[in-house]
């Protein structure tokens, strides 16, 4: 009975050790699988986040730019300036939007009445009146402006991710072309200031 008990106790100890080793191995395998899955998931999430940020910046551009570009040239009949001046990577917009009385006052002194847009250091930058260039939208590496026909402005934007994506080693640029119809430059049969 004693011997039987000792054998049983020895068997139990060995059994427990084996079980523990098996459990540990399985745990390691499970944890390794878990963390490798999490790692892949996190990498993909990070990549998606970078792409989403790039696209969000690219999509934000039309919403912000349209507010300033469409009214360009407003009230130009009352002043001797060009509402839209195009350089290949620089766009100057002038629009007498309002004055102290709420109406165009024939001065380009209010905020956003004289704007310059250009891209530098992966940022689309804007200058209002005599201020300095301020970053407007990040990740914009290319900003090309063209006027294909009178009253129609074409802007080509390219955006890149903040850093190369994991496993891609590239910035994955994305481009879009925006066409703006300039409402103040539609053809008039009669001169605006005869």
């Amino acid at each position: 009975m004693k011997n039987k008990g000792a054998r049983t106790a020895g068997y139990s100890k060995g059994h427990t050790l084996v079980e523990t080793m098996i459990a540990s191995s399985i745990s390691i395998i499970v944890l390794a699988g878990f963390f490798s899955t999490i790692g892949v998931f996190q990498t993909e999430s990070s990549n998606l986040s970078l792409l989403l940020e790039r696209d969000a910046n690219l999509w934000l551009a039309p919403l912000l730019l349209s507010r300033w570009i469409i009214p360009a040239g407003n009230n130009r009949w009352d002043q001797a300036w060009s509402g839209v001046t195009i350089d290949t990577d620089r766009l100057e917009l002038k629009s007498d939007i309002d004055g102290p009385g709420g109406f165009p006052d024939s001065k380009l002194s209010s905020s956003f009445e004289a704007l310059v847009l250009r891209s530098s250091n992966s940022n689309l930058r804007v200058q209002s009146n005599r201020g300095s260039f301020q970053p407007l939208i990040k990740n914009i590496v290319d900003f090309k402006v063209d006027s294909k026909e009178s009253g129609l402005l074409s802007i080509r934007l390219s955006a890149v991710t903040d850093r190369p994506l994991s496993m891609f080693e590239k910035d994955l640029p994305e481009s879009t072309e925006l066409l703006f119809f300039l409402r103040n430059y539609r053809s008039n049969l009669f001169p605006e200031n005869p």
Binding site: R67, I70, P71, N74, N75, W77, S95, I97, D98, G101, G102, F103, P104, R183, N184, R186, N188, L189, F190, P191, E192
Partner: peptide, 18 residues
Amino acid sequence: LLPPTQLGWRILFPETVE
């Protein structure tokens, strides 16, 4: 038949409208 001559076009916002 003569279209009116457009002298200006602008967007108005709550903060600027009068």
